[in-house]
Nucleic acid binder design. Structure first.
Lengths: 195, 195
DNA sequence: GTCTATACACTGATAGAC
DNA sequence: GTCTATCAGTGTATAGAC
């Protein structure tokens, strides 16, 4: 089998790398961190990912974004023209995945990788995360179900809010994150009612 | 004068360091980056900041947070019990400052510094950024001007939204950020009206 | 597939000249 | 106040044994 074959061990590498990169960002995660989490040596990573750290980062972000795009689109499409239901479905999907902080990615991670890779990832992130939510707002706005608003701004704000909640460290006694998102989405939907 | 005297040159160091740390985060900024922006050599930084990189980071975050606390509290106190006015004043203040991404700080920067420093900064960030906004929601909620909501959640969501807008790269033709915040705040306030 | 060993660049930090 | 010089530690990456 060629290098890029998806073996069992390779999947573990990608999964751990995605988790660590998502949590701490590109610069703050070293290949030794990833290897340590896998209980192997740093050099061994190059068997699975010959391209090195940057290629690994690009691959896991692209994988994660493809997953998010599919997850968000199906979650939103599963419900009808009900904004609250769609946003809650989207939030539930996002909470089920490793937190992808696209704000930090644009501010911190992209400048740390090669411009070519950054440019590719930027559009992938936009298409996968922002677009599905933005199109939801556009659709409901055009149908008159919500007031006319800048759909891109609303989508970005929604994703930032959900990500903020997702990033809260789980503390004993803290309210469940799904309850927090429900409450926020309720406020948003009431604020977007026509008239 | 002792080492900690605030000389002219020292202020420049702190200002540049705050800007770079705020933009890219602790791990992604090197002392050589800061020195280069000041047109001096990396070793020269140690004259102004004998404590090194971590001490520099702690100091600029504490300075920035003290500024934010004062700025947010006065901005909010300047207007009365009008939620929209208070949030717009808070947003205008935040937009006038270098973006302080407290989500990234907690996720990425804090794990990269010593636990002792991280612990100190955590409470400073909470007291300076979240608390002033949270207390605004609590006050208006208790007065019956808005529906009862989790004030901490609303405050975190508000700050995350504003930060997301603040972090958008300035592109030609893009709508002004203040207009975006106005629109978002309007949605929030309508969604929080009693009944 | 994973290891050891190692090359090489970068980073934070110190010492001392000017 | 800033410089040069230098060091130890760390990070990515490669070569080759097993």
């Amino acid at each position: 089998m060629p290098d890029t074959t998806s073996s069992e061990a390779r999947e573990r590498v990608l999964a751990i790398a995605e988790k660590l990169f998502a949590e701490r960002g590109y610069a703050a995660v070293t290949l030794r961190d990833i290897a340590e989490a896998l209980n192997i040596r740093q050099a061994s990573l190059y068997y699975h990912v010959p391209g090195g750290k940057e290629a690994l980062f690009v691959e896991v972000v692209e994988r994660g974004m493809a997953r998010h795009r599919h997850g968000l689109e199906t979650a939103i499409a599963a419900v009808g023209d009900d904004l609250a239901a769609a946003l809650n479905a989207a939030a539930d999907w996002l909470l089920s995945q490793p937190p992808m902080d696209f704000g930090r990615m644009q501010q911190s991670d992209m400048p740390a990788i090669s411009p070519a890779a950054a440019h590719r990832l930027e559009s992938v992130v936009y298409d996968s995360l922002l677009l599905p939510v933005q199109q939801l707002f556009e659709r409901l706005s055009a149908a008159g179900h919500i007031r006319p608003v800048r759909a891109g701004v609303m989508a970005g704000a929604f994703l930032a809010m959900i990500n903020a909640i997702h990033s809260i460290p789980d503390r004993y006694g803290a309210p469940p994150k799904r309850e927090m998102t429900r409450e926020l989405i309720e406020v948003l939907c009431l604020g977007l009612l026509p008239r």
